[in-house]
Design a protein around this nucleic acid. Structure first.
Length: 783
DNA sequence: CAGTGAGCGAGCTTCCGCTTGACTT
């Protein structure tokens, strides 16, 4: 039995550390937090100074009992969780849950995973910092109180099953605000003038591209300018060069890795984290959830060696980066390759690409600046005072650019710069042509998943471990959606001056297309409006920052956590009660107009199941009629005509096999019903116009697919089928599905065997994660 | 991956941060 038990948070880390520590040490992992507030109840006793009720989750019971046993037999238990607020709390929870003996428990932290660093840590043990633990408890309790008091307000006033919280609600607000900004933005056209000149040098001819710095607000002014240019001479007036430098970006944190993987590799935030996790578990990179840009001494040494070996002394420059982000806790290093001499790795294509990105970024961060020479050439026009300007950029020394350049979110496709041909002052430049192109001012761009993470990080909201889950929560709640909009064609004017003649053309370009950007839904808009009206304090971008300041004071022992929570909870709870009591139901209801045939009012609003249109009054004797909005419609811009159309369903469009064909719109979109079976309409079909022959086609398609799916059918019992599904063959009986035991040939199963398998699988009434089927209604005995 | 296909009167729903599996029928 080992004399020492070391507990860290991650199993991959445990494995690495165990190698350094020798046989007297057993290293185990807690797999993150081991206890939490109970899931179903509030879990906080408000009467008793907000005493938290912690429980060990079911999936943590096994690891706790294992650790308990190991701790009992060990001489010393070393709590080596991360050196931050959460890490300290994990140590404390372990101490409490495992009933550790204070005399034989030591708290240590690793700053680097090397033999000397670990030996160092062991020498510098301390006890658990209870102030820091209290700061974590305050954080935990505050989040629980906010989330579990706010969400039920939404259930009552807006729609069931919604949620609100310190982080997610502000994330939604950012997206809603951005959309408002875009809506308020006025697109203004203007004209941009470019010119192409011919430069002849030693009999070789090249082009020089230049632009007029000033823009024209109207077509008339642009035309006026071009007219003046007719017959003009163009002369190089001045050439000005100045040296500039570019520095590399710091090594990756979780947030910057997500941004770059999104821009350069097109990964979603969650995909980046999944692939990074795989790299981490196979020992190829350091920990991927971090807010630190710091590199360990070991890494710095490796980088230096690698850069000098690969590129030479000139390319190396020692750099120390410091974190600027608010509330960073820096318990880990930056994300970097474990071994910097490994330029590539074995693995999946995604793993290779992400690894390569991390390798380049890390190496580049310790490389010298790139040196550039920027050149501005002024070109005078003989007929007017205006001057064209040509811009060039020449790379003098590559430096870090040899390896890596960070991308930006904005695409500056219009920029005209590159290598300029050799020019002399006073040189005459013949004009090839000059264009006046109509351009348009650009509204702010919507957030992508990654740029939202960037913004949240700037505001100090959320942590590296929660960025990806937060993004998925606000989409799961249907507050925001990733937009897919085709865009529309827009006309623009192009006026060209060539050979002293002016011609005008109208051209077209695509604008307004959205791909994967975050857009608020109707529900998101309505919930945001509600929260902004009643809980502006929680929605404030500085709310997190200000409570973080108090958590810091608690961590320093200057404040008691219960008092801090008490001071917050009093007014907050009153706010909640006032809102429940005084505010009306909040559905974002909007009067669209009247139904022509009856004169009844027609409204749109958020209903029990999402956005709906309603004809008639809710509080009248006659029940109003409802219809769900289509997926791509919104409360904001639906027209009266579109709303009325929704009530044209169900629509009988013909007959097939002597049964009616009915088109309608259901929970999952438009469908055709035939012989009480449902057939989804593909996105490309419009339910308002789909006709009999097309419906039959859809039905036959679906039948064909079903046939391909069916492995076996039994005439004696039509309920029983052997089908081919995502995970291979399975047995379907009525509405239940059953797994086929390994080694059984699904094609040879008999009806009896199928029924037997189903019976042995037994009743699967309890399914973790909630059943789809409605539970049998319990008999209500009283009231 | 495909399937799902109501009713606005129960039920249940929810937070943020740590960390990985288990494994869908």
């Amino acid at each position: 039995m080992a004399k020492n038990l070391v507990i860290v948070e991650s199993p991959a880390k445990a494995k690495t550390i165990e190698r350094f520590l020798g046989k007297d040490f057993t290293v185990k992992s807690s797999f993150g937090h081991v206890r939490d507030l109970s899931k179903k109840q509030l879990g906080v006793d408000i009467e008793k100074g907000f005493k938290p009720n912690y429980v060990v989750a079911d999936d943590k019971k096994k690891i706790i009992s294992e650790l308990k046993k190991l701790a009992k037999d060990a001489e010393t238990v070393w709590l080596a969780t991360d050196e931050d607020r959460e890490g300290e709390a994990i140590s404390w929870h372990l101490f409490e849950t495992l009933n550790l003996d204070e005399a034989k428990t030591k708290r240590i932290v690793f700053h680097e995973i090397t033999k000397t660093a670990i030996d160092d840590a062991i020498k510098n043990f301390r006890s658990i910092d209870l102030n820091l633990v209290d700061a974590q408890q305050a954080r935990r309790v505050l989040d629980r109180l906010v989330g579990f008091e706010l969400s039920p307000v939404l259930w009552r006033k807006v729609k069931p099953a919604l949620s609100a919280g310190r982080v997610q609600s502000v994330a939604v607000r950012l997206i809603v605000d951005k959309e408002e900004e875009i809506k308020a933005f006025k697109i203004v056209p203007f004209f941009r003038i470019t010119a192409d000149f011919r430069v002849v040098q030693n009999g070789k001819s090249t082009e020089l591209k230049a632009e007029l710095p000033s823009r024209f607000s109207t077509k008339e002014k642009a035309l006026d300018f071009l007219n003046k240019c007719i017959g003009a001479e163009y002369t190089v007036h001045a050439i000005e060069t100045k040296p500039t430098q570019k520095s590399p970006a710091p090594p990756f944190t979780t947030s910057t890795l997500q941004q770059e993987a999104s821009r350069k590799l097109g990964f979603s935030v969650s995909k980046t984290m999944q692939v990074a996790q795989q790299l981490y578990e196979s020992g190829k990179i350091t920990y991927m959830r971090t807010d630190s840009v710091n590199l360990s001494n070991l890494a710095l040494g490796m980088a230096k060696k690698e850069i000098i070996y690969q590129f030479g002394e000139d390319f190396y420059q020692f750099r120390k980066y410091t974190t600027k982000t608010k509330g960073a806790q820096e318990a880990h290093e930056a994300i970097r390759p474990t071994f910097l001499d490994q330029h590539t790795i074995d693995g999946t294509a995604d793993q290779k690409r992400l690894y390569s990105l991390i390798w380049k970024r890390t190496i580049a961060s310790q490389m010298s600046n790139a040196k550039l020479e920027k050149t501005n050439v002024n070109i005078t026009i003989s007929t007017t005072k205006e001057q064209f300007v040509a811009k060039g950029e020449v790379l003098i020394f590559e430096g870090f650019l040899k390896v890596y350049l960070e991308s930006t979110d904005e695409d500056n496709a219009d920029e005209r710069s590159g290598v300029l041909p050799p020019l002399k002052v006073g040189q005459n430049l013949p004009l090839i042509k000059s264009d006046a192109t109509e351009r348009f001012t650009q509204p702010p761009s919507r957030y992508s998943e990654a740029s939202l993470v960037k913004k949240l990080e700037e505001l100090g909201i959320g942590r590296p471990s929660t960025y990806a889950p937060t993004i998925s929560t606000i989409q799961k709640r249907e507050y925001v959606a990733k937009g897919e909009r085709e865009g529309v064609l827009r006309d623009y004017i192009l006026i060209t001056l060539k050979n002293d003649k002016i011609s005008e053309n109208t051209k077209q370009e695509k604008t307004g297309q959205i791909k994967g950007k975050l857009i608020p839904t109707d529900i998101g808009n309505v919930v945001n409006k509600f929260l902004m009206k009643h809980f502006i304090n929680i929605m404030d971008f500085n709310f997190t920052a200000s409570v973080e300041k108090e958590f810091d004071e608690i961590a320093l022992g200057q404040k008691s956590w219960n008092k801090m929570i008490d001071a917050f909870y009093g007014p907050f709870h009153k706010q909640v009660e006032d809102t429940i009591e005084k505010s009306e139901k909040f559905s974002g209801e909007k009067l669209l107009g009247k139904e022509p045939s009856t004169g009844k009012n027609i409204y749109v609003k958020i209903g029990r199941f999402g956005p709906i249109a309603q004809i008639g009054e809710t509080d009248s004797d006659e029940k109003p009629r409802f219809a769900a909005l289509k997926k791509n419609q919104s409360l904001d811009d639906i027209t009266l005509e579109e709303a009325l159309e929704l009530f044209n369903f169900p629509r009988t469009i013909g007959t097939y096999e002597e049964e009616e064909l009915v088109v309608s719109i259901g929970r999952f979109g438009p469908y055709v019903r035939h012989k009480s079976k449902f057939f989804s309409l593909p996105k490309t079909d419009d339910p308002a116009t789909v006709a009999e022959d097309r419906a039959i086609e859809i039905i036959e398609d679906k039948r064909q697919k079903d046939r391909e799916k069916t492995i076996q059918k039994f005439d004696e019992n039509e309920d029983v089928q052997v089908l081919k599904g995502r995970w291979g063959a399975y047995i379907s009986i009525g509405k239940n599905n059953y797994k086929i035991p390994k080694g059984t040939d699904p094609e040879k199963l008999t009806l009896q065997e199928c029924l037997k398998i189903a019976e042995e699988a037994g009743d699967k009434t309890k399914k973790p994660g909630g059943t789809r089927k409605k539970a049998t209604k319990p008999f209500k005995s009283n009231k």
